Simulated assay, not measured.
Amino acid sequence: MAELIIYSERIKENIKYLSDFFEANKIAWSLVTKVFSGDKTFLKTILTKDVIKKINSVGDSRLTSLRNLREVNPDIKTIYIKPPAEIYAEDIVEYADISLNSSLSTILVLNEVAKKKGKVHKIIIMIELGELREGVKRDNILEFYEKVFNLSHIEVIGIGSNLGCMYGVEPTFDKLLQLSLYKELISAKFNKELKYVSGGTSITLPLIENTMLPKEINHFRIGEAAFFGISPLDNKPFKKLHTETFEFYANIIELKKKKIVPDGIISDANVGHTSEYDKNNVQETSYKAILDFGLLDVDKNDLFTDDKDISFVGITSDMLVIDVGNNKTSSGETKFKVGDKVNFKLNYMGVARLLSSKFIDKIYKKDK
């Protein structure tokens, strides 16, 4: 099977580094683990006591993941990082200490469930700041908060926003200042103190470094920087974080010299994706290698290689074909053979998909 290598010690060092960084800047943070899809091996390997001691909470967008987290470590504070569906209110109250919300009807259901369970469920209310994803409309904020403040088993602990995830609206100082001002408005109107202004994600990290973060922003939700060492604002490494945290190795299961142009009538019946080819090169050939993974495991657009001799040919449900040219090294020796492994680098979505695939081996290593 193809293998996803996870360098666990580097990831743990990233998390510890971020904890110290946020502590120095008087910011609480939630570690978002959704890339690992609630994998129990990950939870046991990465979230050790020394790693999580300075984390405010661990967040995910899947209830099964929070359930697994509670089974592995019942003492971890958990946060559900997207607006819940009303139908899952029972599980939200059971497995999430905090949830992000933007729908009044859902909050009302959460209140009733929490009342039945004898709990007080904490929420952060999300505000729409231009990304056009989740969030209460800004002209409705005061009315919304007034109704929620009156609920008996809901504790409003903050206000939040989500920027950069769908359209890529940048979390600028001015955008986040708006969030801060809404917090002040709500506190003054209702004489309520909102503990958290949750305006930060991995894309917002450079604002701290450049002292461009409004001082009221005191809560971050971080996934990508912790696991990949980068801020998606510029896809560059953030400070001293490790970036080489994952590698993907696929096995060559066939390697033969074949034509570049397919032979026969091309129909619409194919289920895979192929690269463009020049129909005039009907006589040309090159070496094609077939690898042991496919579309069911990962999108080929989420894979990258530094080997300039490798190019993409096609992918189907369970196999990927690459072109390896004349299959020779610079010294004229054979470069690949059947049984060899081909190495790929991955982006966030590539890792997330591979971790979700039951057909890929996941191997945890302390280091190379």
Rank of each mutant, 00 (worst) to 15 (best):
H153G: 02
I141N: 00
F149D: 09
N150H: 11
K116T: 10
S99T: 15
V148I: 15
G130D: 01
G130Q: 02
I141K: 03
K147A: 12
L100A: 07
M126I: 14
D97E: 04
E131C: 03
L142F: 06
N101E: 15
I154W: 10
Y145Q: 10
L142T: 05
D139Q: 04
K115I: 01
V148K: 12
F144H: 05
S102G: 15
I157R: 00
I157G: 01
Y95D: 06
D97T: 13
H121D: 07
N140A: 14
G135C: 08
V113I: 12
F149Q: 07
V148N: 13
R138D: 06
Y145A: 07
I159E: 00
N111S: 01
V156P: 10
A96I: 13
I157M: 01
S99K: 04
E112S: 12
D139Y: 06
H153A: 04
E155C: 02
G158Q: 01
E134R: 06
E90T: 13
A96V: 13
L151W: 10
V136P: 07
N140L: 11
T106L: 08
S105R: 06
F149G: 05
N140R: 14
A114T: 09
I159K: 00
E155L: 04
V113A: 00
I127M: 11
G158K: 00
F149P: 07
I107R: 12
L108K: 15
F149I: 11
L129V: 10
G118T: 05
I107N: 09
I141R: 02
V109W: 01
K147M: 13
K115E: 09
L151M: 09
I159L: 02
L151I: 03
D91R: 11
K115C: 02
E146R: 10
I92D: 12
R133K: 08
V136W: 08
E94G: 11
E128F: 11
H153K: 04
R138Q: 14
R138C: 05
I141D: 00
T106I: 09
V136L: 08
L108D: 15
V93W: 08
L104T: 10
E146N: 12
E90N: 14
R138W: 03
L104G: 12
H121G: 03
E155D: 09
G135I: 08
I124G: 03
I159V: 13
S152W: 01
V156F: 09
